[in-house]
Simulated scan of single mutants.
Amino acid sequence: MNSTDTTTAATGTAAGTGRLAVGARAPGLTEAVTMTGAAPPVLGRSGRSVVLKFYRFANCPLCNLHLHSWVVRAAEVKAAGLVPVAVFHSPVRALREQLQQGAAVPFDVIADPDKRLFRAYGVEESLAGMLHARVAADNMRALRAGYRSMLPFGHEGGIRGHPADFLVDPDGIVRLAHYGADYADTLDVDTVLNAARDLLPAPPPGPAPRPAGRT
């Protein structure tokens, strides 16, 4: 869940793959639809760095387990100057009905049932990706945490899909691109926060504190 493999080419796509390379301009989110109907951040124009997290379908137990770690630490992530955004290949209706988070997700969740963004970012899929010991281990953790799924072939958008993570700077440039080797290989909060400190400019300072005794 905290693997740190990333693409390292300078621009465009990584050689010999459809992967988006470090140094490339991130594909825009302007046509994306969020679960709440809110407009997603405009990459390169929001003045903030964005963390894009790609998951599979809305009630995927693994995805919900991993997403929850970002939900409970969202304030910490935002305080570090990062805007988290999750992308699922389920439609809005499924996200609203099936995303298994006890409280509202405190950041944008994009519905991408046509997988337009998945293709633009080179996100990969395979059946072999589920055949890894850490996938079985995380599935057990998800079940113990109460996350359940429907029958495997009942999911809109299918069951295949590796996670992927992207760190996009305020200019809209990809500074970190992680493509999961299997269904459980997604970057955790600490890994991304550490990478952001190394790879991104410092976030703009907050308002200066008021002098004592002044209102």
Rank of each mutant, 00 (worst) to 15 (best):
R116M: 06
R116T: 10
G12S: 12
H178N: 04
C60Q: 00
G122E: 04
G206H: 15
G154Q: 13
R148D: 01
A21S: 10
A15M: 05
T34N: 08
V33P: 00
A202N: 06
D185N: 06
A9H: 08
V22L: 07
A208F: 03
R175I: 09
D169T: 11
A196T: 03
R96E: 09
M1L: 06
F153R: 08
R175L: 09
G180V: 05
M130S: 11
L95D: 07
P84R: 03
L52G: 02
V105E: 09
L62Q: 07
G102R: 13
S49E: 03
A128F: 05
A120H: 07
P40V: 14
F166Q: 07
A86M: 12
R48L: 01
R141D: 09
T17C: 07
E97V: 06
G12V: 08
P41N: 08
A38Q: 14
R144I: 04
L167C: 03
G28R: 14
T215F: 12
G154F: 09
E156F: 01
R19Y: 07
L199A: 02
H162V: 05
R116Q: 14
A32I: 10
P27T: 10
G206N: 13
P152R: 00
A38E: 14
I173F: 10
A208V: 07
G28E: 15
L117G: 06
V92K: 12
V85E: 04
G158F: 11
N59M: 11
R119K: 14
D171A: 15
Q100P: 02
H162F: 13
L99W: 10
Y183G: 02
G129M: 13
